[in-house]
Design a protein around this nucleic acid. Sequence first.
DNA 1: CTGTTAGCGCCTTCAA
DNA 2: TTGAAGGCGCTAACAG
Lengths: 361, 361
Amino acid sequence: MGKSTKIIGKAAGGREGASPRKRGVTIVDVAREANVGRMTVSRYFSEPHRVSPEMKKRIEKVVKRLGYAPSPAARALASKRSNFVGVVIPSVTNFVFSDVLKGIYSAELSNDHQIQFGNAHYNPREEEALIRNFLLQNPTGIITTGADQTTECRELLRQANCRVVQIMEYTEDPIDMVVGLDHYQATLAGIQHLYDSGYKKPGFLAGRSFHGGSMEPRISQRLEAFKHITSKNGGFDESHVLHTGEPSSANVGRSLMSDLLDRCPEVDSVFCNNDDIALGALFECQRRGVNVPNEIGICGFNDFEISSVTFPTLTSVCSNRFKMGKLAMEMLMRASEGEEIEQPSVDLGFQVVERESTQRK
Amino acid sequence: MGKSTKIIGKAAGGREGASPRKRGVTIVDVAREANVGRMTVSRYFSEPHRVSPEMKKRIEKVVKRLGYAPSPAARALASKRSNFVGVVIPSVTNFVFSDVLKGIYSAELSNDHQIQFGNAHYNPREEEALIRNFLLQNPTGIITTGADQTTECRELLRQANCRVVQIMEYTEDPIDMVVGLDHYQATLAGIQHLYDSGYKKPGFLAGRSFHGGSMEPRISQRLEAFKHITSKNGGFDESHVLHTGEPSSANVGRSLMSDLLDRCPEVDSVFCNNDDIALGALFECQRRGVNVPNEIGICGFNDFEISSVTFPTLTSVCSNRFKMGKLAMEMLMRASEGEEIEQPSVDLGFQVVERESTQRK
DNA sequence: CTGTTAGCGCCTTCAA
DNA sequence: TTGAAGGCGCTAACAG
């Protein structure tokens, strides 16, 4: 019911020709009632400091009384600018990004900027489509994930009339600005930590390792690191690398760990590409009665909050995601206001957070 | 570099008066080049079936060549409609909502509808502001969470010129449509399951239980259920209820469980208001060497994917979140196209998923 | 099926 | 500091 009533009511009400169909109040109404020019009302909203106090009061009063709010569409059309930041992330389910979003929100200071999300589903084509759509609306800026945009997309962003921040992955050659970390180095450090803790034969577990045939770039970099460091420590063994195209999850982690334990009993530790994988690996060990850290050491990636809660707690490579989102947003806002950004490429680094899962007794 | 170069370039390029400042191609350009009226081009995009095949071909060609895409702002202004659905969720970090979002996305069929998110931070005032802002843009529809909107907000949505779906919480009196579940009944069932499994003294753990002094409505309903059922089974004991204003998380679950075990040794089981709380509770038990399910039974809520992966696996009350998002979106789309919705209030129900954490041996 | 004519509501530009 | 005129790019409403 609710709505059938409603619709009928509206249709009926709109019948009369005189009153412009339940039209909302516009800037003209406000100007008339406040006895000022339209432009003054317009300025009242966009450049209040350029309006005299008296005018302000008069306008404010009418605005409140009429419940007026500027139309975003008209604004965008006339000014060729919208006051939102477009954010493209590859997944709404990978917890990695919820911290990034939190960071982005935490920086949403000062201005009345909106944030608009797009879910690219780990697909560069979708990413391009989303960005194209954002750009059509002349946003204040764009934050997008990774450094593997299609060349078309990169070109699009370069031409764009707004600032752009790439996040998650550090690159020397950003489209505009970047706040990320070096996944190769971070992985190296995580695995080195395993060796330093006395483990000899690390395995490598990863979810969402490829998309449409090609390897997910950040996973690919990490795998390179794994190859490199194992080669120098007794040899790289391909059978110790288990990955799947499925999205990263505890369940995937459990099943990868299960396979690894079955197939490679010589492995004494694992580097997990995401803490949810590590979590699943831990549970699999618990279920099998395999002691962590004594029989198997586990090092995760990203340092989810939960990794300090598990039993045993999980060692992880912290990727500073909150800070990343926050800094990206802050840089974007400052740059959009014309401020010079002295350092457009930021490598936020990482920390290996040692916890119980790699502390053999 | 990237951008400094760019900006200078742009500023310099815009100097000339003749060429309209790198202006994008418009519908007029397309019409001219294709030798058709503007309206035909317009129809080509909004009502293709009303354009003859020949015209279509001509237009398509030019559109591709010129790389034309309609301006959303101009469209919105002229038509008083935007092709997006506004989605308001209370949190980007509570995993509960990532499944809902997944469901919403999965239904994004047919049309080229965009989805626009707003994060209300569990704050009705923020929710209202977000909705107000969405409404200003004449969206196709709005999906919002819960049934505790401010009265002003409800009024706003009723007046709105678009369809509205409330999700998560079932109510007999929706603003327009609702897809939810009855949290009171679901909780009753979860706790009943504990009794049925042989536990006598359940505790009750909850995160994010209140906001600005008043209790979060869904938690409040669940607490009522707890009171009701414990009263009938040996008596309600207030000290068995532990909650906090902090966002729900495994860490919060761990700390609540720790308190509960310290303060109420007589408790033999817990009903956790979210699976992350249950997860934390489980870890705390493991750390203390308290056997789950033999010494303590655990029943969670929402049935996260991880609950079937833990050791022991976690019993949980499944809230069908994916389906909820999907159905909500589908109903919204159908309703927006004028279709009559026979059942505007849907109670999706719940399932108590029994797993190891409540199976005493 | 196609085209014409008027705006949509606001901001840019320029003049006062 | 304020205001007047014009147009942003598109679609509604009507005509052909």
